[in-house]
Design a protein around this nucleic acid. Structure first.
Lengths: 117, 117
DNA sequence: CAGTTATATGCCTGTCAAGGAATGCAACCC
DNA sequence: GGGTTGCATTCCTTGACAGGCATATAACTG
């Protein structure tokens, strides 16, 4: 459910840009406005979406609101991605074979499953 | 650029469901229609979006079109995710400290960077 | 060739999200 | 306290997208 919020939050390029900005360091809204070239209200709205998706957190510093990334939702994305890793960890040939055979689903015997990093 | 197509393709829950279906094995359209409970035209349109995002490939088998996952775009997602991994590999305390200090960016000394698997 | 199966495309409508402009609100400064 | 700074919220308009129905297209069947 909040899965949907996460994906649709990240579907917007401006919001991905904001997230990337916040990866470097937490920033107040003004800085984000300047960086992403949107109007201040527009930026605030994007921040609200990110907030409601749980992707960012706010800390109040006088009149400023300093936004920072929350790792959890991105970790959730990583978890979503996990089952797909075998697709490119195993040789692409395997996919080709599946395309050809469509029936042999017992090919758990893959290459070496070496962690990609 | 095609990055945008990838994200917006995956932003839709039905399309994520289709992608998950195709992770198990390639499937003809009919099967996908049945599985995701949409009309056949609706399903076909989702498949078109996935196709144009590069997420799936089609193989023609008589009158059938068998769809299969293409690993590349999902790998791209994984690559996008990579810079964020440090966020949850390192202790969450580190994030807390950044929230408090906002200036000390030289905290490359993290915990153990143990691969999450 | 006529009919059927399997999929794609077009058209239409309702919904929703993005972005701008104006305004509201809270905390600071003199 | 009055003005200012920093951000959020509201209203509005416009454009994009989802989903249904009808229809086109392509390949198989007899």
């Amino acid at each position: 459910m909040s899965d949907a919020a996460l994906w649709s939050a990240l579907a917007d390029p401006h919001r991905r840009a904001i997230v990337a900005l916040l990866l470097e360091r937490p920033r107040p809204v003004g800085e984000i406005v300047e960086a992403c070239g949107l109007s201040q209200p527009g930026t605030s709205k994007h921040l609200k979406v990110l907030r409601e998706a749980g992707l960012v957190r706010v800390r109040q510093d006088a009149q400023r609101r300093v936004y920072a990334l929350d790792p959890a939702p991105i970790a959730a994305l990583d978890a979503w991605l996990a089952p797909y890793r075998r697709l490119w960890n195993s040789s692409l040939d395997a996919l080709g074979r599946r395309l050809d055979e469509t029936s042999d689903d017992s090919d758990d015997r893959r290459e070496s499953l070496t962690p990609k990093d």
